[in-house]
Design a protein around this nucleic acid. Structure first.
Lengths: 240, 240
DNA sequence: AAGTGGTCTAGACCACTAT
DNA sequence: TAGTGGTCTAGACCACTTA
């Protein structure tokens, strides 16, 4: 029975087994680097690589000065994104269900090339940028950056939490479709700090655009830690 | 101007800048570990950590024996998941657009606890399991595992590529809604091999379930390399 | 004060690639 | 044959946590 795999993979496999079969229950400490070197008779680098791998898999997490611990069930937050309503904000409703109202701040700026393309305007055109931070227990759960062409007055924005659709409806702008593009990317340094992301954790990004006919009237980046969220889309089936 | 950051972060930041501003264009070689140690006057570990970080960010990729290279624009495949039709398969249509028909294989087995919960059956109940591999240029782009309660005869499955909705419609099972739950997880070893995933790359997983009324009639895991796909959902806005 | 994780140096071996 | 990335050992420093 040869085991030609790298040493750290065998160490990781053994620890993984202990975690999955309950020998190391959630919250319990994982053998430290030194303990691993002694128990498995390997060097610190191999021990380090094993711990790093399990961390990237989301099975354990390291606390500097303390140790590595088996992660508790990473209670995933399920975001229902099934249908949009004129009545209230989609995302706002979801967030309220989490028991948190977002903090938000608005500023006037100019469109970057990317935002310009999404809003079908020219780069440099004036846009209103709003930053939402979903904070619960002094912890930032999610970040959203919203962009609208032109200037949106603060008075209008006071209803921001109540949804783009309702707010624009008051201005006789009828929103009839919403597109959400979902992808995954590595976070920037500032995003890691702000959202307290685990090292190796990725961001689940929703690029959401509200359309009135073929005209985009608002677009937003919704940034979610990929290890804490599930997106739930309910899709219609047409009548043949 | 103090720079208290770890050494490898400063090296990575410098290389990242060169990649983003075009000094190191896509496809060009990145300084090797030894070159970095000499040029930046750091140890091999710091050089290694810098290269590892940029790899995890998707900016570069390593080829053993050759070197690290700036990744070419990782041309993202956009999967349109806007509406389901009785006419043809949703996913099949998407895949055809990529110029590839999936290879598939069916087997009979029993429901795992997780699959049982998704199909509202008992663990151990009989299920038909179908594995689809989307292969293009001898490269596996995506994997799908589909589960249906009971036994589906091979004859019925010959229309598999034509869609669950159409196939079941022939049996007078009317599918009226589809739920897609999207999340991100680390791949298993076998998944890394099969889909030739970059180290550190994550999987974008769609858990898709077809419903007839409240009854789930089919569920599937669609596994996509998270650095190659964007999911595009078009959502309806109800009429107030 | 002891132990820990994150980082670091110096040096090394292997399988692989490129020439 | 020389260079490379992936892996490895031995040993170390620091800021931090824990007791």
């Amino acid at each position: 029975m040869p085991s030609p795999d790298p040493v750290y993979l065998r160490v990781a496999a053994d620890l993984r087994r202990q975690i999955l079969d309950g020998t190391l229950p959630p919250g319990s400490p994982v053998p430290s680097r030194v303990q691993i070197t002694q128990h498995y008779n390997v060097g610190q680098t191999a021990a380090r690589n094993a711990l790093r791998l399990l961390t990237s898999e989301g099975l354990i997490e390291g606390r500097v000065g303390s140790g590595h611990y088996v992660r508790k069930q990473p209670d995933l937050t399920r975001l229902n994104r099934n249908l949009y309503s004129h009545e209230r904000s989609h995302f706002a409703a979801e967030v309220e269900a989490l028991g948190v109202k977002p903090e938000w701040k608005t500023s006037i700026g100019t469109a970057s090339p990317e935002i310009a393309q999404r809003l079908l305007i020219r780069p440099g055109d004036q846009v209103t940028r709003t930053r939402y931070a979903m904070i619960v227990n002094a912890e930032c759960l999610a970040l959203t950056y919203s962009y609208e062409p032109g200037i949106v007055t603060p008075e209008n924005h006071e209803s921001a939490g109540h949804g783009v659709i309702a707010r624009m409806s008051a201005d006789d702008v009828r929103i009839d479709s919403v597109v959400e593009e979902v992808h995954v990317r590595a976070p920037s340094n500032s995003e890691v700090e702000e959202m307290e992301l685990r090292t190796g954790s990725q961001l689940l990004v929703i690029e959401r655009t509200h359309f009135s006919g073929n005209r985009p009237v608002e677009t937003a980046d919704i940034l979610l830690p990929s290890d804490r969220f599930v997106l739930r889309y309910r899709l219609p089936v047409d009548e043949k």
